[in-house]
Design a binder for these strands. Structure first.
Lengths: 227, 227
DNA sequence: TAAATAGTGTCTGTGAGACACTATACA
DNA sequence: TGTATAGTGTCTCACAGACACTATTTA
C-alpha cells in the first residue's frame, strides 16, 4: 500500500481519494422527511451507521457517483432519484482513518415510494450519530435543503409528490427548517410558487377538524441540476 | 503514464486528480477589483492565461492548496491572503485534456497592496478567455462574491481596506454585481453593517464635486473561514 | 355545542429599488 | 453661477413574521 503511494509520488502527479457522500431524503408520507443511512459492511466503521458514499472513480461525474452510492449502498432504483444538488466539499484530513480523503457531499431527493432494501430511514431531525464526519454533512445539507424548499421545484416536488394538503406543507417545512411556520404565511408562500396551483379539492389529514386545501403541481417532474 | 494508472487500478482504490483553482481578487485602489491570472508555464494550455491552480496533494487541506497555488503561481506572499471561501466543485470530465480532473474552486481575497510577481491582474468584469473551464469558474465566483459583499466582513474588508469613501463603495458594488447601486440605498446598507462606522472625515475621489464620506472598520481584519 | 384543525385578514418591520430634492465642491 | 459629484428623505413593493378572528369538521 505505501509502496504504491511512493510509486505514485514519483511517477505520477499527486492523487487523492475522493468520496462522494449523499444525503438522500424522501417523504414516505407527505410532511415527513427521512434520510437514508446504512450500516457499513466494511471497515472502517464497520457496523456503524453512515451516509451512502463511494469513492469517485476516474472519469466519473459526481452525480454518477452519487447515483452509484444510492444504488449500491441503499438499494435504491436509479429512476427514483428525482433531484440532486451539491452541498459542499469537506476536507478534514482526519475524517477517514484510512487516510486523508476529500468528501464531496451531495443531497438527493428520492421518490416517496422508492424502495431501498439496504437502507434504514430516520427522520431528518432525529439522525443518530453517524460514522466519519457525516453528522456535520447532514447538518449542512439540512440547511441547504431548508433554503431550497418552496424555491427549487425539483426538490420540493420530490418531497411533496404530485399533490399535497396544506397542513402537510406545514409539517414538511417544520421538519426541514426546525421551526413550525405560521399557516397563514406559508399559504401565501405557496400561492407565490408559480408551478403550484390551489385546487378545489379538500383532504382530511387529521382525525378531526376542518379538511385541508389540496395543492397540485402543474408540470411533470423535473430534475434539479447541480454539479 | 498509462502504466502507472493501470497499477493504480489494480493495487489501490480508485483515486482522482483533484485540482484546487483559485479566483483571487484584490482591490489595487478602493472601488476597483482585479483578478489574478497567470500564463501557464507547462502543458496543457502552455502559454494560455489561467487561474492559479495546483493538484491537491495527499493530506493537504483545501485552503493550504489554495495558498500554495497563490504563492507558486502568482507569486503572492501568504500573509497577503486575507480571506478564503469555497465556490463549488466542478466535475466536467473533459475540462482537462490530461484526463478527468475534479476541480474544487475557491475564492480568495488578497490585500490591496499585495505584490505578485507572476500575476497579471485583470478587472473582474473584463476577464479574457481562460484555459480549462476557468471562465465558468470566474463567473460562478463573481456571483458568490457579489452575494457576500457587505455581509462577509473578511471579504469586504479585504476589498475596501481599513477605510474607504462612499463613492468607492458604489464602484466596488458595481464591479461585483454588474449593476450600479443607488447611492442612497447603498448608504443605508453601509449603515447596517455593524462592524462599519461612519466617520467625520471627507475624502475627495473625483476631480470635482462634493467630497465623499469616509467609512472605517472597527476591528482588525479577520479571516473568513470556509472549507 | 365543544374541541380540534384549517384558512383569512391585517398589522408590523425590513430591505431593496426608485427617484426627487438638497448639499458641497471646483472652475 | 454652472456643472459635477455626493447625500438625504421618502414612496413603493415584496416578503416574512405575528396574531386575532373566522370557517369547517367530528365527537
Amino acid at each position: 500500500m505505501s509502496y504504491v503511494l511512493t510509486v505514485n509520488a514519483v511517477l505520477a502527479p499527486p492523487m487523492s481519494h475522493v468520496s462522494v457522500d449523499v444525503v438522500a431524503v424522501r417523504a414516505p408520507r407527505p410532511g415527513q422527511v427521512v434520510v437514508g443511512i446504512a450500516r457499513r459492511q466494511l471497515p472502517p466503521f464497520r457496523g456503524r451507521l453512515a451516509l451512502p458514499g463511494v469513492l469517485l472513480t476516474r472519469g466519473e461525474r459526481l452525480r454518477e457517483a452519487a447515483t452509484r452510492a444510492l444504488v449500491g449502498k441503499l438499494g435504491v432504483d436509479a429512476v427514483d432519484v428525482l433531484a440532486l444538488g451539491q452541498v459542499a466539499t469537506f476536507d478534514e484530513p482526519s475524517r477517514d482513518p484510512r487516510g486523508p480523503t476529500l468528501s464531496v457531499a451531495l443531497w438527493a431527493a428520492l421518490s416517496g415510494t422508492a424502495s431501498a432494501a439496504l437502507a434504514e430511514w430516520v427522520p431528518l431531525d432525529e439522525v443518530p450519530p453517524l460514522a466519519f464526519d457525516h453528522d456535520r454533512i447532514v447538518a449542512d445539507a439540512r440547511q441547504v435543503l431548508a433554503d431550497k424548499l418552496w424555491r427549487d421545484v425539483g426538490l420540493t416536488r420530490a418531497l411533496t409528490g404530485r399533490s399535497f394538503a396544506a397542513s402537510e406543507a406545514v409539517e414538511l417545512t417544520e421538519t426541514l427548517t426546525g421551526r413550525r411556520p405560521d399557516a397563514a404565511n406559508l399559504n401565501k408562500t405557496l400561492a407565490n410558487v408559480s408551478a403550484l396551483r390551489r385546487t378545489e379539492e379538500r383532504r382530511r389529514v387529521q382525525q378531526t377538524g376542518r379538511p385541508a386545501v389540496v395543492w397540485a403541481w402543474d408540470e411533470p417532474p423535473e430534475s434539479t441540476t447541480a454539479g
